[in-house]
């Protein structure tokens, strides 16, 4: 499916509780640099440390409520950077691993400061060989939130293959993929400077995972994808306020 507007009440309430996705009110008057210099968990909340394009307003609560997470679960996020979702999951008693090769250096030091401020223990993996050593079949949930649309097809497929291997039997892989309204097949441009409309069917086919949630009419690349229907339904969809996109969502399950 594609995320709809207005958001459900429980999504709005969840966003309010955690200050998602931009950080709590007081952080709006403080630059990211200053927020990261002196992390104030109460004033800023866990979502105040990474800029967002706006679709996460839908994606974070969707992922939270759809994943059915419970304390003690092992979860992996890919490319989450300093995003707040990982810290929320950790505060809810989950064991969290964030694999993000782009977060080495200063971002990793900032990540450690946020961990300390919120009393969490999210493991940040920036080294690919360390990522490759993660125990296969050990994660109950894998989150790929707006990750695939920033990767080329080969890299995206590699992330999904790795995610499928890391999932425990019965585990779920939750995917959001931005559908960019200025790019083909909706707009006239072939691709953007750092993103593209990825063929979700090709990326997810043959992984040994089952589509447990998601409307193929709203997942680009699936034979059932219906451009005309998507365009017609745009007024009902949650369109990113800062970048022209809507959010495709899918859940893939690993057979138990």
């Amino acid at each position: 499916m594609i995320g709809r507007a207005p958001l459900q009440d429980e999504y709005l309430e969840w966003n309010r509780t955690w200050g998602a996705p931009y950080g709590r009110g007081p952080s709006a008057m403080v630059s990211f640099r200053r927020r990261l210099e002196k992390v104030d968990p109460d004033a800023y909340g866990p979502f105040a440390f990474q800029a967002q394009r706006g679709l996460k307003t839908f994606q974070y609560p969707w992922a939270y409520f759809t994943a059915g997470v419970r304390p003690g679960m092992r979860v992996m996020l890919s490319g989450e950077g300093l995003g707040g979702f990982q810290f929320v999951l950790a505060m809810n008693g989950l064991q969290v691993v964030n694999v993000d090769p782009t977060a080495a250096g200063e971002p990793a030091r900032a990540h450690a400061r946020i961990n300390r401020a919120f009393g969490t223990d999210v493991r940040l993996v920036t080294d690919l060989s360390e990522a490759a050593a993660l125990e296969q079949g050990s994660f109950d949930r894998v989150f790929l939130l707006s990750t695939l649309d920033h990767l080329g097809e080969r890299a995206g497929r590699a992330v999904l293959e790795s995610s499928a291997a890391l999932l425990a039997p019965g585990g779920l892989c939750l995917i959001t993929a931005d559908l960019l309204l200025h790019l083909r097949p909706l707009g006239v441009l072939p691709e953007g400077p750092a993103e593209r409309n990825v063929d979700l069917r090709r990326l997810t086919d043959g992984l040994g995972l089952e589509l447990a949630h998601g409307d193929p009419r709203e997942l680009y690349g699936f034979p059932e994808f219906d451009r005309g229907r998507v365009v017609e339904m745009l007024p009902e969809m949650f369109v990113g306020p800062f970048y022209p996109s809507v959010s495709q969502t899918a859940v893939l399950g690993k057979p138990g």
Binding site: L181, H182, G187, V188, L234, V239, P241, F242, P244
Partner: peptide
């Protein structure tokens, strides 16, 4: 000139 807005894209206007 916005590429997400008609006549290039599918939106009537953006934010």
């Amino acid at each position: 000139l916005f590429f997400d807005v008609k006549p290039f894209g599918v939106l009537p206007a953006n934010s």
